[in-house]
Structure formats: structure tokens, C-alpha cells
Design a protein around this nucleic acid. Sequence first.
DNA 1: CCATCACCTCCTCTTACATCA
DNA 2: GTTGATGTAAGAGGAGGTGAT
Length: 210
Amino acid sequence: MGERCGGEEEGECCSKGDRTRRFSEGQIRSLESAFEAQTKLEARQKQQLAREIGLQPRQVAIWFQNKRARWRSKQLDGEYRALRADYHALLSHFDSLNKEKQLLLKQRQALADLLDKSEKNDRDAASKEERSRPSVKEEPDLEFAGCTEEEDDKTLSYFCEDEPGPRAVQPATASLPSSAEKQLHSATGRAAAQTPSSNSPWWEFWPLSE
DNA sequence: CCATCACCTCCTCTTACATCA
DNA sequence: GTTGATGTAAGAGGAGGTGAT
């Protein structure tokens, strides 16, 4: 049910000719300040305000209704803009993180290749040595094949997760060049959380465009 | 207690007109 | 002077709350 003429207010309907007559600046000022105080008026307040500014209570009620609608629309617009700005900032951050991720994955692959090569060299050297003195049989210093050692080198545990990369890594005795080792430490330390396994992280599915 | 009705207020959408570039 | 965009007062109708019966 609408606010019909003759309903809550005692005033008569505005004639059609009055329909779009703008309110005076003073009336608008009073209405605006009342709206700032409260966006909904009690019946008595409405009557009083209407009397003060020379309008029908129904006109005051309608002005408040329209004002609330415009106000909400403005609020929504502001919220939308803020959310859109947040989204774009987040998207930009995501892009830079994604680039960094790709770079780290490349580095990881390069270092894994390097480790493979180094491991192969070690094996070749060991078998040569074995052949030169066949009577002596030694246990290796450490058992790495199962990755059971509690090393503080994260490299070991990292490559032993469900990764397609190398599984058995020789200990510090391996002939890994020191610079490569440093790179490996820094690279794996940050890339460890980005294993492209079956349970991929959320950002794998993040849409890259709006 | 409940169902129904009348009345009121609010909301949303729309209309009619005014104003401005 | 005309026209399209925009703003605004008000109409129309639906939804929900409330009190009386």
C-alpha cells in the first residue's frame, strides 16, 4: 500500500500542475539538515517540519523517501568503487607474485638439473675409486636415499616431497659449487610453498582477467 | 490463541516535468 | 529553438508491521 492522498496526512494532494515545482532553497536546506540528523522521521517530527517549512507532511515524507533512495544509491556506488579499487590492487599484487613464482620455478629447475649432474659425477668418481681398490667396502657416511635425515638444509626435505624432482641428494660432501648451493638455499626456501602438486593452491585458479 | 482485515509506512520502479549543456 | 541527459517531485503498487475484531 502506498502513501495515498488522504492517508496519514491531513493535507490534500498536490495538483498535477504542482507536480514538479521545485522546493525552495530554504526548504531544501531544512530538509537536508533534518535528514543529516536522522534518515527517517517520526510522524510528529514530520508534521512539525512540514509546518515549519510550509509543505504538506506528505511532501516531506516523499522527499525523505526519495532522499533515502538517492542516498543508498550513492552509498552503493561508493562501495562499488572501493571494492573495485581493492580488486585491482589485489590483482596487481597477484600478478607480481605470479611472475615471481614463475621465476623461482625456473631457478628451481635449473638447480635441480645442476644437482642431477653433480650427483652423476659423484657416482662416476665413486665407481672409479671402487674399481681402483676393490677389497675395501665402506658404508656411506649418511643415508639419504630415504630422506630420513633431519637436516636443517630444507633442500633435502623439499625435494623429498611429492615432487617430480630429484629424490636422493648427496650430503655436503657432494661437489655442489658453493654459489649453486647458495642459490638452491635461497630459491628452495621461498619456493617450497609452491609445489604444483595435485592439491594446487588457490592462486592456480585465480582468474587473470576481469 | 488464531485468522482476518484495515491501516500505515517503507521500498522500488516509473512518470512527468524542469533545467542545463 | 531543438534535443538529449540529468535531476527531482510525485504516483503506483507490493511487502511487511500493527492493532482491532
